[in-house]
Amino acid sequence: MTSYGDDATVRDILTAKGETWAVVGLSNNTARAAYGVARVLQRHGKRIVPVHPKAETVLGEPGYASLAEIPFEIDVVDVFVNSALAGEVADQAVAAGAKAVWFQLGVVDEDAYARTTAAGVAMVMDKCPAIEIPLLD
């Protein structure tokens, strides 16, 4: 499979571009991968913003039902939805002015990747920031 998001792009998103991370699919379900990844991002100094239909507060941060409802700038949109829904989230991230989109392990939509990067928004696909962050050291 093709790699989407070279090492330089990964590093740029995890450092320069990525202070505020909207985590789509994040809820208080501690068994879900989104919860663990959000916790790792917080431990590395990132502000996480839960985005989930329940709009619940997670890890001390107030949640929103959609990206469009977030009233401040989003640096990175981290996507924890299945591949069939991910493209729509990427389009919403571009519309919201995000600097980058990150599709988690197993989330692949080549058309969304092409649209997002053509719009000038950095993108990583089929990788996990919780795995990549320790590799920066």
Results as ranks from 00 to 15, higher is better:
residue 38 A to L: 10
residue 58 V to P: 09
residue 53 P to S: 10
residue 51 V to Y: 02
residue 23 V to S: 08
residue 67 L to D: 05
residue 59 L to K: 09
residue 74 I to E: 04
residue 54 K to R: 15
residue 73 E to S: 14
residue 71 P to Q: 14
residue 73 E to C: 00
residue 44 H to F: 15
residue 49 V to Q: 00
residue 57 T to E: 15
residue 22 A to F: 06
residue 43 R to M: 13
residue 52 H to G: 05
residue 50 P to E: 06
residue 26 L to V: 08
residue 26 L to G: 12
residue 36 G to V: 12
residue 24 V to D: 03
residue 63 G to A: 07
residue 64 Y to D: 05
residue 54 K to C: 01
residue 75 D to I: 00
residue 74 I to M: 09
residue 57 T to Y: 12
residue 66 S to F: 01
residue 65 A to N: 05
residue 40 V to T: 15
residue 56 E to M: 06
residue 50 P to Q: 08
residue 37 V to P: 07
residue 65 A to G: 12
residue 65 A to E: 14
residue 33 A to Q: 12
residue 41 L to A: 14
residue 70 I to R: 00
residue 20 T to M: 02
residue 54 K to Q: 15
residue 43 R to A: 12
residue 72 F to R: 11
residue 42 Q to H: 10
residue 63 G to E: 03
residue 35 Y to Q: 07
residue 76 V to M: 05
residue 60 G to F: 11
residue 49 V to E: 00
residue 69 E to A: 15
residue 38 A to D: 04
residue 35 Y to A: 04
residue 59 L to F: 09
residue 35 Y to G: 04
residue 27 S to C: 02
residue 56 E to S: 13
residue 28 N to R: 07
residue 75 D to P: 02
residue 24 V to W: 04
residue 73 E to T: 15
residue 24 V to I: 10
residue 73 E to F: 01
residue 20 T to F: 03
residue 31 A to M: 12
residue 32 R to P: 01
residue 23 V to A: 09
residue 71 P to F: 01
residue 76 V to K: 00
residue 42 Q to T: 08
residue 55 A to S: 12
residue 43 R to D: 13
residue 47 R to A: 11
residue 71 P to S: 07
residue 35 Y to D: 03
residue 52 H to S: 13
residue 35 Y to V: 06
residue 34 A to N: 13
residue 31 A to S: 13
residue 23 V to D: 02
residue 59 L to A: 14
residue 63 G to Y: 00
residue 52 H to V: 03
residue 67 L to N: 09
residue 50 P to W: 02
residue 65 A to I: 01
residue 24 V to N: 11
residue 55 A to R: 07
residue 24 V to Y: 11
residue 53 P to D: 11
residue 67 L to P: 07
residue 47 R to V: 10
residue 24 V to E: 07
residue 42 Q to V: 08
residue 74 I to C: 12
residue 28 N to T: 10
residue 44 H to S: 09
residue 22 A to S: 13
residue 51 V to M: 09
residue 54 K to Y: 03
residue 40 V to S: 13
residue 44 H to Y: 14
residue 62 P to Q: 09
residue 64 Y to W: 11
residue 72 F to L: 02
residue 47 R to S: 12
residue 36 G to A: 13
residue 57 T to W: 04
residue 21 W to N: 09
residue 67 L to K: 04
residue 21 W to S: 06
residue 34 A to K: 11
residue 45 G to V: 06
residue 42 Q to K: 14
residue 29 N to Q: 11
residue 55 A to N: 11
residue 63 G to R: 01
residue 41 L to K: 10
residue 49 V to M: 02
residue 71 P to N: 09
residue 47 R to C: 05
residue 43 R to S: 12
residue 68 A to Y: 08
residue 53 P to E: 10
residue 49 V to P: 00
residue 35 Y to F: 13
